[in-house]
Design a protein around this nucleic acid. Structure first.
Length: 477
DNA sequence: ATGTCC
């Protein structure tokens, strides 16, 4: 695949064949010269052939191969003439990240870190198929699917400001539980408030460096501050919604006059009944994920108070933000100087709305939307802020994380004979985990260099660096 | 990501 550099941090796949627009990859020159993502680039070009796509099929520096659409991909479609595709959202619908700051400094928790990580691991169910945090009747689950994070706060599992400081207020209004399969509902009844497995985690960290004082202050972050960062999604329910939708879309797309370069790009016109149906189901899973992360934060608050023997006022665990990085959204964007309603697919990509945007909560109107970028468990994670450049260049989007360089299998092979948890402990990071091969699959070497990814989107202007967090202890599934 | 194959 021939890439043409069009600006210091942007490379284009020229429009050719049945592509309706070019492809665009945001990355540094260093990353471009070392790029070995031929399959992901092909997927970018494939997405560019879909009806109604606007400006370009895009990819972020953390891109890698995914189901149909690349992970790290952004694709916006005209609401009237474009399509929506489950492959453009991903299996873990509203997989996302939540960050909370505390009133504590690192030295205040150091004597208790071992007890803290043990208690977090006990109090938060983790691993494939984990259950047992909250049990729902199907009737109550319907409320979760309609209300999202707000449901959890109404149950006493959080604070109103948590919901205010969540993307979309932790709820997509388009959710319609009547379109969800019986099987998806059943899977959802016992998994709310559980972590999951793979790259999902809950991490206690500290603010290690501040790059933007003003934004950090607005986000409630200060040097050496203890933070809680968690990464989880819509669990088995979201998986089932995606699976059901893919099966349905594969049949549906054959009734349309669309030639797909890859069957995994199965889609529907956004305005069609099939499109509306997927959007309504996806929104249910998104709301489930927000309720899930809300409960995980609540469990973290409970655990800190229990272990440290302090009350909520001394803990002062306040939510900074909660973002999703696997979602499709109805948004207004300016395309070629004209305002358009578009459906933005962000799959392994994060919203990055600028200062002054009406969708950004009041507290962050001056700074832009907070963006949470988890790195690997041995390195660092970043807090960034949205920009006007992102609005102009990438439909208000940026990267989502480090991105894999080793497959799970390759990572397991590389870790043979090693004790990853000891290597992490030597770096001062305590980790507790559930799955037999989770630590091997998730070891730091399995991921790209988070600093390079973040520097690339910062350099491209798609978001700006606010703070870096270093892990102290981690629980994983 | 995922009751890692109903």
């Amino acid at each position: 695949m021939q890439l043409k550099q069009i600006s210091p941090y942007c490379y284009e796949i020229p429009q050719s064949g049945s592509m309706n627009v070019p492809g665009r990859v945001f990355m540094s020159e260093r990353m471009a010269s070392a790029l070995s993502e031929e399959e992901a680039l092909k997927q970018v070009a494939n997405v560019a052939t879909l009806p109604g796509i606007l400006t370009a099929a895009m990819a972020m520096p953390d891109m890698h191969w995914g189901y149909g659409f690349p992970i790290g991909g952004v694709a916006a479609f005209d609401w009237d003439t474009g399509v929506i595709s489950p492959g453009g959202v991903g299996y873990d619908i509203n997989c996302g990240v939540r960050l909370a700051g505390t009133g504590l400094e690192k030295k205040e928790i150091l004597p208790a870190v071992e007890r803290l990580v043990t208690a977090l691991f006990q109090n938060i169910p983790s691993g494939v198929g984990s259950t047992g945090s909250v049990k729902l009747s199907v009737k109550e689950e319907m409320r979760v699917l309609r209300e999202g994070g707000r449901w959890a706060v109404r149950q006493g599992l959080g604070e109103p400001s948590d919901v205010e400081r969540t993307e979309d207020g932790g709820c997509m209004a388009e959710a319609d539980p009547s379109v969800i399969s019986e099987r998806a509902l059943m899977r959802g009844t016992r998994q709310l408030g559980t972590l999951g497995s793979g790259n999902h985690f809950l991490e206690v960290g500290v603010v290690d460096e501040i790059f933007d004082e003003r934004a950090a202050r607005a986000f409630g972050l200060f040097p050496d501050q203890v933070t809680v960062l968690l990464h989880s999604g819509s669990r088995g329910l979201g998986y089932q919604v995606c699976d059901d939708s893919l099966a349905f879309m594969a049949r549906h797309v054959r009734t349309l006059d669309i030639q797909l370069p890859d069957r995994q790009l199965a889609c529907a016109m956004i305005r069609s009944e099939a499109g509306r149906r997927y959007f309504a189901a996806m929104a249910c899973a998104a709301n489930y994920a927000w309720a899930n992360r809300q409960i995980l934060l609540h469990r973290a608050r409970e655990t800190f108070q229990q272990v440290l023997g302090i009350g909520p006022r001394d803990l002062a665990m306040h939510q900074v933000y909660d973002i999703c990085h696997n979602i499709a959204k109805r948004e207004e964007h300016t395309v070629d100087g004209k305002k358009r309603i578009v459906c933005v697919h962000r799959k392994g990509a994060t919203r990055a709305f600028p200062p002054g945007h009406p969708a950004v909560c009041e507290a962050y109107r001056q700074t832009g939307q907070p963006i949470l970028i988890p790195g690997d468990m041995g390195t660092a994670s970043y807090v960034m802020a949205g920009t006007r450049t992102a609005m102009a260049q990438s439909f208000g989007s940026t990267c989502h994380g480090a991105g894999r360089v080793l497959s799970r299998k390759a990572a397991k092979k590389r870790s043979r004979g090693r004790a990853i948890h000891r290597e992490l402990a030597d770096k001062g990071i305590l980790v507790k985990w559930t799955g037999r091969s989770t630590l091997a699959e998730e070891m730091p070497e399995a991921y790209k260099d988070i600093d390079q990814v973040v520097d690339a989107v910062h350099g491209a202007g798609l978001s700006k660096k606010v703070a870096r967090l270093r892990p102290v202890c981690v629980i994983k599934g």
